[in-house]
Amino acid sequence: MCRYCTEYGNGTKWYLNPDNYRPELFQAPGHNTAYDMLSGVYKNSFEVGATADSEDTLPDYNFGGAFNIALEKITQHQGQVLPLEDALRVIDMTPGDRFLLMHCACRRHFGHKDVFSCLFFDPVVDRALEQRPWETDSRVITREEAKEFEKEMDRLGLVHSLWDSGVDSDGKPPIVMCHCLETDCMPTRIRAHFGIVNAQRKGEYVSVVDRKKCAEGCTKMPLCLPRCPFGALRYSPLDMIASVNISRCFGCGLCRTVCPTGAVRLVDRTTYPALVDEW
């Protein structure tokens, strides 16, 4: 497990630990910075501003380390990829019944499609509505609708990633589920282009392909390959099967859902010694 689960997991994954969903945690002043930056009035300044002219401010190409520290200590803004099952568990664990569907700020501000893909949790709903009055078409939905929304995102091929507000000693409360892609989203781009781990961590799982089952499935047009947003799947024209590059896999589980023979499954990331420190 990575340090998030070690420090905030209490024996399980950090986002499955009920301690991180305590209502008082959402009121604690230590987490306020992240609320403002993720859901509030500073969202745009932070999300897009973080990369604006960053290379001029930090002209050394190895500024990943400084960026990592900034993300963790100053902005208290980190995310992790998770598969659909865990996304639904998180929705179940979140206190309150309301969820707020809001525009994806990253996509819009780099000229991409304006889509609803950010799902804020109940403790920040009022604050987000109050602090972002220009988002007039945001929708408040119920827990059941939120689950349907997550399943729809999964069908579309958008990765679930969970964002929390800070690593203060009292806990790590998740506040929003985003659906980021490398093509158009800030955290995934920062991770992919600059290797900044704290921008978006890999999930707790990796995919495994059963070679025999895969050989019985789609031999000519592998359906799973275009589902992988991280370029972790490979296709061998000799064996006519797909395989996973585990060092690239983020464990989002999107490849599983389209496999006609059920050849893909998720296993715990720490199964492999190679991935023990790979997050």
Binding site: V41, Y42, N44, H109, Q131, P133, E135
Partner: peptide
Amino acid sequence: GYMNKEAPDLDKFIPRRLEDIDHKIISG
């Protein structure tokens, strides 16, 4: 990309549309 020149100060002005906020072009 584009971003707000300054985060809106809601005590002074409440923008009702995104276009009400002053934006600038940024490069990342």
